[in-house]
């Protein structure tokens, strides 16, 4: 679906943000259409997570305008944006380790808008992640990294999102678990939820995303459909080429693994 077909769910125009005096995200404009899955790609330190923080309201915009479903939310505090419909599965998962899986999920549906859908959403996330329903009463901190990632995504879904923001869902997970997580993301996307995905794992991201933006040093350097990005010289250079210069042997192995991963994901 092209972004012009319907008014975008989320639109950032000329966004600047950063920490203190240092500007990390520099004049970035992105838009996410209704029902679209859009990914933000980029290497370490490109500003992906910072941009995500600005969109979810954890970091104020220094300049620029953020419009969500026709409403200017540039100045809206983070907790109100959740009620408006932007639900985040944060980088590094950030589940509440001492609370049970169920308690984490109930907290995810804390906002007023989501409360009445709690039971439906619980059924939905347990359907999506059967592992979680087996571990309802387990303390979240005692689960594996993959399970915690599932919980983080499920918790965001409990908030009845109009835009699901996923920050590095593959971070620190075994390739096999990455597949499971991305399968789930695909299922979520098929159910019609708009997704903004931040990823370093380019290939995995491009298997679910329809469109993507490439960030480098805080600027959008490239954008296009998933297919274009997958074949783009620039992506190859930016994410694979750079490693090539260093240790050729290691990279070939890594590449083979990535290729296998992308292949499997296509079959699934």
């Amino acid at each position: 679906m092209s972004p012009a077909a319907s008014p975008p769910v989320l639109e950032l125009q000329g966004g600047f943000t950063g920490y203190g005096d240092s500007v990390v995200v520099n004049d970035v404009s992105i838009s996410v259409g209704q029902g679209e899955v859009v990914c933000l790609l980029g290497a370490n330190g490109a500003g992906k997570t910072t941009l995500m923080r600005a969109i979810t309201g954890l970091l104020p915009l220094m300049q620029g305008r953020l419009v969500f479903r026709g409403e200017d939310i540039s100045k809206m505090p983070a907790h109100d944006r959740v009620r408006a419909g932007i639900c985040l599965s944060p980088e590094g998962r950030q589940v509440f380790p001492e609370l049970t899986v169920m308690e984490n999920l109930v907290l995810g549906g804390f906002n007023k808008r989501a409360r009445e859908f709690r039971q439906r959403n619980l059924d939905r996330v347990f359907d999506l992640f059967p592992r979680l329903s087996e571990r309802k009463t387990q303390a979240a901190g005692l689960m594996s990294g993959g399970e915690q990632q599932m919980l983080a995504i499920a918790r965001a879904l409990m908030g009845e999102p109009k835009l699901l923001a996923l920050d590095e869902p593959s971070l620190g997970l075994a390739p096999k678990i990455v597949l499971t997580v991305f399968d789930a993301i695909k299922t979520i996307a098929q159910s019609g939820i708009t997704i903004l995905l931040v990823e370093q794992n380019t290939r995995a991201a491009l298997t679910v995303a329809e469109r993507g933006y490439v960030l480098s040093a805080g600027k959008i350097v490239h954008e296009g459909s998933a297919r274009e990005l997958m074949q783009s010289e620039m992506i190859q250079k930016a994410f694979i080429g750079a490693i090539y210069d260093g240790d050729k042997k290691r990279v070939t192995r890594r590449e083979r693994r990535l290729a296998a991963l992308a292949g499997k994901a296509d079959h699934a």
Partner: peptide
């Protein structure tokens, strides 16, 4: 109780 772990994470859930 969740605020005890992380106020920022709680805020991301709309609290």
């Amino acid at each position: 109780r969740a605020m005890r772990d992380s106020e920022a994470a709680v805020q991301m859930l709309g609290v």
